[in-house]
């Protein structure tokens, strides 16, 4: 591979998409539209969230190089991002017709199906991908996403732990472990995940913002709200209300009234305090 392409790839891997783009635009005219150069351009633009340009670049690459599964992958992702899901599906299927075992295409198509609510089909697609490359980061990430879509937060966290174990250097793995821990109300584990992700890739805004949100959640004033995060709204609310009703039925109306009043105060606390803590933590952050 050309040294400039190598360099652009290294810049991307360390989260410097803008520098990668300028490296790519300095390529000689006959190489600039090559398939791999175009894939790197798409990857850089996607890191910058410029999805419309990802689509343009993929189309230009396909025009110059003919059908190519890797470029079809980027085109499909940009169509999905633009909300044109049926077009995205056609593009992914064209890619899979050329490369039926392509793990990235299988996972991207699984993602698309999951977001359409077709969780069973998505599961089968990601199983196919996992049979080809069980330890590929994209396979882990898609399985986690799917478990989350099914509402199985425990399974999502389990796969995230496995992902971090196999790819301890991968910032996305740590971020996913952070996200799945947050979904289970494990605030400290969640903060640790995003902190490591942000440390490994300081240029990624989302990681830093999530770590900051969790600093808010870890604030001492937020401690009383942990049961709601940890056990979920359903369990905490039903426990509280059943206790109030139970105390009343047991002939202790005063205690029931006190508990009811405490619960009311707790509700008000849970509305008023989080925004104030967020403001305070943000001020310290900036």
């Amino acid at each position: 591979m050309n040294a400039a392409l190598h360099h652009a790839q290294a810049l991307l891997a360390t989260g410097r998409p803008e520098q990668a783009l300028s490296e790519l635009s300095a390529l000689p005219a006959n190489e600039v539209t090559g398939s791999y150069a175009m894939q790197l351009r798409c990857a850089a633009l996607s890191q910058l969230d410029r999805w419309a340009e990802v689509g343009d670049a993929a189309r230009a690459g396909l025009g110059a190089n003919g059908p190519d599964p890797d470029l079809l992958l980027w085109l499909g992702r940009s169509e999905h991002e633009a909300g044109r899901d049926q077009v995205a599906e056609r593009v992914f299927l064209d890619g899979l017709a050329l490369a039926p075992n392509d793990v990235d295409l299988l996972c991207a198509y699984a993602d698309l199906c999951a977001s359409d609510g077709q969780l069973d089909k998505a599961g089968k697609l990601v199983e196919l991908a996992a049979a080809r490359a069980p330890q590929a980061p994209v396979v882990y990430a898609t399985r986690i996403q799917l478990a989350h879509a099914r509402g199985d937060n425990r399974e999502a966290q389990r796969i995230s732990r496995e992902f971090v174990g196999v790819h301890p250097e991968n910032p996305v793995a740590h971020a996913l472990l952070g996200g799945t821990s947050a979904a289970r109300g494990q605030v400290d584990a969640a903060y640790e995940g995003f902190r490591q992700a942000a440390a490994a890739r300081p240029t990624e805004q989302v990681f830093a913002e999530s770590a900051m949100e969790l600093r808010v959640a870890r604030h001492p004033l937020m401690l009383p709200l942990r049961p709601i995060l940890r056990f979920g709204a359903v369990k905490t609310w039903l426990t509280a209300v059943l206790l109030v009703i139970g105390l009343r039925a047991a002939g202790l109306p005063v205690l029931a009234g006190l508990l009811g009043f405490a619960w009311l105060a707790f509700c008000v606390y849970s509305w008023v305090v989080p925004p104030l803590v967020r403001k305070r933590v943000l001020r310290g952050w900036r």
Partner: peptide, 15 residues
């Protein structure tokens, strides 16, 4: 895999 690789995405309602 025929059914996996045939189109099934429905028309999305505008959000």
């Amino acid at each position: 895999h025929d059914d996996l690789f045939s189109p099934t995405i429905r028309e999305q309602r505008a959000p």
